[in-house]
Structures are given as C-alpha cells and as structure tokens.
Design a protein around this nucleic acid. Structure first.
Length: 566
RNA sequence: GUUCUAAUAGCUCAGUUGGAUAGAGCGUUGGCCUCCGGAGCCAAAGAUCAGGGGUUCAACUCCCCUUUAGAACACCA
C-alpha cells in the first residue's frame, strides 16, 4: 500500500531524528492541487517536543530527502504552513504500482487476517410479500457479504426468515376460518389473510388470544398446525427466493426462527445452570442491566407466561447453533436500526453466557425508507409498495426515458433496473434514513447506476477495436486527465479496506462514481483510436483496460452487473 | 415521561473518524458533436454545516445547552 510506504519513509526520518510519533499516519490529500498525500501529524509532534511545527517539519523534510528511497518514490516533498508535509509521487512509482495492480490478483490490494464471519441479513417474514422496506437489508447485506468475501474472509450468509412468531398463528387462524386446508394454500391468499387477521387482533383481544394459543401449540408440535406451517413456509419461501434471485441476492443458509427450536432446548439448561433465568410476572426473563448503564435496559423476555417463545429466544437459539456449527469470529446483523435495543439485550445475554469471549457481535442498523413526506414509505392505498411493483415502475420509467430502450433485451433491462435501484441505495450512508422517491430512484442521468454502466460500455467499445499485449507502462504520464485517473485507481486499496472495516458499501459506490468521472474526463480529452503516437496509444489502452477491470470487479461487490449494451 | 438518533446548497445526498479553500447529483444559467457511444464533457450561480457556548494550534467532525424531527422503551417481530 502506498501510504504504508510513505509512512515507513517518514518513520525512518523520524527515527534518525530520535522523534517518537505514536500514531504516524499519512493520508490521501484533500488538496489535490497541492499534493497526492499529506502528513498532518506535525502539530502533535511539535506539542510533545515544545517546538514549532515548521521547525520540526524542516528537519524531517531534510531527513527524508537524504534517504535514497525517497527519490524513488517521491517527486516532491514540501513543507507548507501552518504545518503540513506534502508528498507528490513520482510518475515512475505511480506506474509501477499500477503495474502491480495489473499483474497481481485482486489488484494487489492488502488483505486482512482471515476471519470466520456469519452475516445475517434479509430477514423477511413469511406470509408477507417483500416490500420496499426489505430492499436495504438485502442490497446492503449482500454488498457487505461480497466485500468481506473479496477480502478473503470465510463468510456464511443466513437469510434468517421470520417464520415462527405470532404472525404464523394469525395466518393459520385466518386460513382455518376460511376453511382452507393446508394443500389449498396460495400465495395470494396468504398475502390477503395476514394483514386482515393482524388488523383484527389489534381490535379484538379474544382473537389475539386464540392466535397466540395456536402459535404456542404449533411450537409444541401440534400436527395439524405444523402441516399448515410447512406449506405456508414453502409457498412463501419460493416467492421470497424469486425476488432475491431477481436482485442477485443469495444466501448460504435459508434458516428461520423455527429452525432455532432444537437449539433453544440445548440452550435452556445452560441458562438454568448459570442461574440467568428469572421469573417475573409469570414469564421467564434474563436481566441484563449493568451498573454503568445510563439508560433503562429492559430484560430479555425468554418465555411468555403461556410458555411460548419470542424472537429474543429464537435469536439466542440461532446464536447457539451458529457458534456450535461455525465457531465464528464475528456475527454481523444487517437489520433495521429500530431493532437496536433488542439486539443490545441479546448481545448482553451472550456476554453473560460467555459467547463474547470468542465471538464478536455486531449490529449494523440501517435507516428506514421514507416517502417524500419524510414518513415511512406508503402507497396511496396505505401499504408499503411491493418490490415487484417497484421493479415494474423503474423499468417503465427507464423504457420511457429513451426511445432506443424499447429494443433492449429483457436480460439487459433487468440488469439496468437492478443497477438503478442498487446504486441509488448504496451511495447513501447505511445508517441514515432516506427519502425514497420513485422518480429519483429511476433517474438515469447524473450520479446514477446507468452512468457507471455507460462509462464502462463506452470505454469497452474503444478496447474492443484494439489489441493490447503488454502489461507495463512506460515512464510517462501524459496530461492532467491521465494523471488524475491513474491516481484515482491507486485509491482502490484504501477504499476497499475502509469499506470492509466500517462495513460501508457506500464508500465503494462513491469511489466508483468518482473514478468514472475521471474516466469520462479522460475520454473527452484523450482520443485514442486515431492516435499516431503508438507508444502513447498502448499506454492509454492499458490504463483504460485496468480502469474497466477495476470498475467491473467493484460493481460486482455492489452486486451490479453490466449489460451487453444500452 | 426516560433514553437514543439525526439536522450540511432550492431538492436528494457525500464528507476516509479533528487538518489546508465543505464536495456531488438534480434543478437554474451559459458553452461543447467534420474525431473512439452526447445516458457524456466544460463552466457559472447557489452553504452563517439548525442556533448558542466550550475543548483544541486546528471543529461539519469531540463536549454542554437550546430548537426541530424521528425512533425505541416486557409477553408483536
């Protein structure tokens, strides 16, 4: 990594002066007009040594310039007030690093220590169609998974269906009321019944009690209810899978809450042995309060007073299973941030059991999808729009945006609809709520998915006309657009490692957009096909090929594909 | 009520965890096709980073207060 090399130069210079700096960090410049990389630690150094930053800076720069390696890497080292050391790379060194990216796997990025990770995202409920609220967990989770895998981690993804709570009792109740036998269940019926009975339960306490008892009996193994459950799950899961397939989202494990039950049975004795279970108001709870708390943390409700289990219980059972099966270093949850408190209590129970000694738990909350009024997104009918509806809308808007789109094949159309949605979503910061406006989400000009795809295809059409048979650059960089593009590509390593460390796919999305801006600027300024200077032509072709390879690979981490043409 | 989270250009968002002159897209105004794909490129205008204090050589970023909005808070998930 380039920053590491500059840091080691700096370290050597500091050592020669007997200066100590605990957090020596060189960063990508935020003043590209002045330099490529910068060091702003002089102020702290100055404070410790009781000298002025410029005085110390002068000595460090002098020491740097004495080092042989400095000349190989850096064209310019400059000290600027109020106290920055600015580094500008040698053209040769830039090209050398680009070559390493071409020759080595995964563009020569630095790979972290390999970890075993379980990632839990998606989390749809069966018997309920997927709506826009499910989009983020799927897209963001899928992207985080791909990023972690790319960096070499051993990742297992689990969709973790919501399949065993009160909602199932409600649906079974509704089906029985309408005399529908398990073999006659249809998807349409499920989608109709769930909201109906759910509404009824809010109004009528008696019906709610019946649904709760059905749920309890189901959990206890009632044959009839289990027949219902199996078919509901199968029908529903088939449809959920269809949507995820369309989005290119896939899971290694299709477990749900119901699959946690055998493990709850194994977990309960452990909780009893550790004296964690307490009775409270007829229910069994686990207290998780800590002395240092500034806020009230409610206990985890392990068993309802009627003996049924809740989602905290199934989450714990699931954790038991994951630890037994995979013994992971990390378990990551990509879940709506409104569930943060719930997971906080679950994680605290894990700490009490001792799971946190070997496994770290991470809750990645994502914001709510809101409508243009700032309230959770709803259709005119008052429901969250189904994802099918959203896909259809976006496709229609795209078709209308340009006449020639009519002639596009279905596969390319689907790829573009995916790109539009995913890029619109992923360029936002994961944690924040965001406004979902269908007009905005079907935008095809500006900072959008189609812009990136267009950039790729346009560059590709140049590359197709030529053959490239070299893997190295000459010593030159020809102009500003050329240099800007090369420098941007070199940021890949930093970017992807930052994205992985902070689980922020948006970093990659924004990087790719910036790189495409550089690619387009290059494209406008530097015409290649008719170039007489063959050496220049070969260098530029090689550069464009690398750019497009980076673009394609990184788009894949955002689960965005590239169409044949558009 | 308690506790969290947020507030950046007209709109929608970035902002690499405290660094130099706060960046994009849309929208607005004006340029650019005898040349590789104009879904593009170049430029202009537009910001008291909600307001006020504090810490620091340095604050959109950290701390405190105020305002506004959202969320969570035991038998739903």
């Amino acid at each position: 990594m380039i920053v590491k090399e500059i840091e080691s130069l700096l370290k050597e210079a500091l050592d020669s002066l007997k200066y100590e700096c605990e957090n020596l960090e060189v960063i990508v410049s935020n003043r590209k007009d002045l330099c490529d990389y910068q060091f702003d630690g002089l102020f702290k150094l100055a404070k410790n040594l009781h000298k002025s930053p410029l005085e110390i800076g002068k000595l460090i720069v002098d020491a740097l310039l004495k080092q042989e390696k400095t000349k190989q890497i850096l064209k310019k080292v400059e000290l600027l007030p109020p106290g920055f050391i600015n580094f500008t790379l040698n053209d040769n060194y830039i090209n050398h690093n680009l070559e390493l990216m071409i020759i080595n796997e995964k563009f020569n990025i630095t790979l972290p220590e390999k970890k075993k990770i379980v990632i839990d995202y998606g989390g749809p409920n069966i018997a309920k169609p997927l709506h826009v609220g499910h989009l983020r967990s799927a897209i963001v989770g899928e992207s985080i998974k791909r990023i972690l895998k790319y960096l070499g981690h051993d990742v297992t993804s689990d969709v973790h269906l919501g399949d065993y709570g009160l909602q199932i009792g409600q649906v079974i109740y509704g089906l029985k009321e309408e005399m529908i036998t398990p073999d006659k269940i249809t998807l349409e019926k499920l989608e109709e019944i769930y909201p109906k009975i759910s509404g009824l339960c809010k109004e009528n306490e008696d019906i709610k009690k019946i649904c709760a008892s059905i749920t309890k009996e189901l959990q206890d193994g009632n044959k009839e209810y289990n027949d219902y459950f199996k078919n509901i799950r199968e029908i529903s899961q088939r449809d959920i899978k269809r949507i995820y397939d369309y989005l290119g989202v896939s899971f290694d494990v299709w477990n749900g809450e119901s699959d946690a039950y055998p493990f709850i049975e194994k977990l309960t004795p452990i909780l009893i042995e550790k004296k964690l279970l307490k009775k409270s108001e007829g229910a069994k709870i686990i207290e998780v309060k800590e002395d240092t708390d500034t806020k009230e943390i409610p206990p985890l409700l392990y068993e309802k007073s009627d003996g049924a289990y809740l989602y905290g219980t199934t989450d714990l059972g699931t954790i038991y299973e994951r630890i037994e099966k995979y013994n992971p270093d990390e378990i990551i949850y990509v879940v709506d941030k409104r569930q943060e408190l719930h997971f906080e209590t679950v994680f605290r129970v894990c700490k009490k059991i001792g799971y946190t000694n070997n496994t770290s738990f991470e809750f990645l909350g994502f914001g709510t999808v809101n409508g243009s009024d700032g309230k959770p997104f709803k259709t005119r009918a008052g429901n969250s729009p189904k994802l099918d509806f959203l896909f259809k809308e976006v496709k229609e808007v795209f078709l209308k945006s340009n006449e020639k789109n009519e002639s596009m094949n279905e596969k390319d159309l689907d790829i573009i609809v995916n790109a539009i949605l995913k890029f619109a979503d992923l360029q936002n910061n994961r944690e924040k709520d965001y406004i979902f406006d269908i007009a905005k989400f079907s935008e095809v000009i500006g900072k959008t998915g189609p812009y990136l795809l267009y950039t790729y295809l346009r560059i590709e059409s140049i590359l197709k006309k030529e053959t490239i048979n070299k893997e190295s650059f000459n010593e030159q960089i020809y102009n500003k657009e050329d240099r800007d593009l090369r420098m941007k590509i070199l940021e890949l390593d930093n970017t992807i490692n930052f994205a992985a460390k902070n689980k922020l796919p948006s970093t990659i999305a924004n990087f790719l957009y910036e790189m495409c801006v550089n690619m387009n600027a290059f494209y406008e300024k530097n015409h290649i096909n008719n170039l007489m200077d063959l050496e220049k032509k070969e260098n530029w072709l090689l550069l464009l090929k690398l750019s497009n390879n980076v673009l394609k690979s990184m788009l894949d981490l955002l689960s965005i594909e590239i169409p044949e043409r558009m």
